[in-house]
């Protein structure tokens, strides 16, 4: 019971908010964070696609080990790991349940397990890369790949505006709760309470939409006074903006190391089977 209480205390909105802000701004002294964001994105493109097409179990296991090591090195927030594990286990468990109903039996457990490994490799790769990248650096990396300025701007804008938005949402939500009347009984499976809160959640967006509209106008106007949309089309400005991204000796080292590890994994995979 204490455990449940502990979990409930941890999973309130304040905790989530602070965890997210920590993810966005903290822990920048890790090895992955010191790499050039372009290197990380190229590295990630490999591990985001290739595992889907690998059916060799040894190779997959090698990949998983690498990802776990990198995730530990990136010092990822426990909340994110819990969300990931819950998602993976839930999906696989449900698939298994249904395939048992269809008479698949436990035989379907093994292929599903390897699919889980695959998904875990891909998810861990993205977690390791994207949590160790500063939003500023990530948006600059996108810009350097030629992504339109609006899109790369919105990444760093999103990270910055989030605390304000969450706070404002909380205020609106609480004022709705103050004015409204919560149901006296919970109903079966708490459905009364749940539907009450969900309704409030939806209603809270009405003032929020209006407020955000005002804010987005202010934002765009402020940006335009600084020549925002002009600077995106100007090559000179882009060069200046991206000047702080530099390659160090770590970048080729990291890529060469990964390539060596992958070749080793494939060699091991063919050697054993």
């Amino acid at each position: 019971m204490n455990y449940v209480k502990d979990m409930r205390e941890k999973l309130n909105i304040e905790y989530v908010k602070s965890e997210l802000i920590k993810t966005a701004y903290g822990g920048k002294e890790t090895f992955l964070a010191s790499l050039h964001p372009r290197t990380l994105i190229i590295w990630y493109l490999f591990f985001g696609i290739v595992p889907w097409f690998i059916h060799n179990k040894i190779v997959l296991s090698c990949f998983l080990v690498l990802m776990v090591v990198l995730t530990i090195m990136a010092r990822v927030s426990p909340l994110i790991i819990v969300i990931l594990c819950a998602g993976l286990l839930g999906e696989i468990g449900f698939l298994l349940l249904v395939s048992l109903v269809f008479g698949g039996g436990l035989a379907s457990l093994l292929p599903m397990f390897w699919l889980t490994v695959k998904l875990a490799v891909i998810a861990l790769a993205s977690i390791a890369v994207f949590t160790s990248m500063d939003p500023e650096r990530f948006s600059d990396a996108l810009l350097s790949f030629g992504v339109p300025g609006q899109a790369s701007f919105s990444v760093s804008f999103g990270y910055r505006i989030l605390p304000t938005l969450v706070e404002e949402f909380q205020r609106v939500f609480l004022s709705y709760r103050l004015r409204g009347k919560a149901p006296e009984t919970h109903g079966i499976f708490y459905w009364r309470t749940a539907s009450y809160y969900l309704k409030l959640l939806v209603l809270s967006f009405y003032p929020l939409i209006l407020n955000s509209a005002k804010r987005s106008r202010t934002t765009v106007e402020a940006l335009e006074t600084k020549g925002f949309s002009y600077s995106f089309t100007n090559a000179e400005v882009k060069k200046m903006k991206l000047a702080h991204l530099t390659y160090t000796y770590k970048d080729p080292l990291f890529l060469i190391g990964t390539v060596a590890y992958i070749s080793f994994a494939f060699w091991l995979g063919t050697f054993i089977s």
């Binding site: 889907w52 097409f53 059916h55 449900f94 698939l95 249904v98 395939s99 048992l100 109903v101 269809f102 008479g103 698949g104 039996g105 035989a107 379907s108 093994l110 292929p111 599903m112 390897w114 699919l115 695959k118």
Partner: peptide, 20 residues
Amino acid sequence: WVGVEELEAVKGLAESIIVI
């Protein structure tokens, strides 16, 4: 379909995915 290699070998898996 792409991710699971032995999809056709395991009875019920393919149907269950479509149902899900």
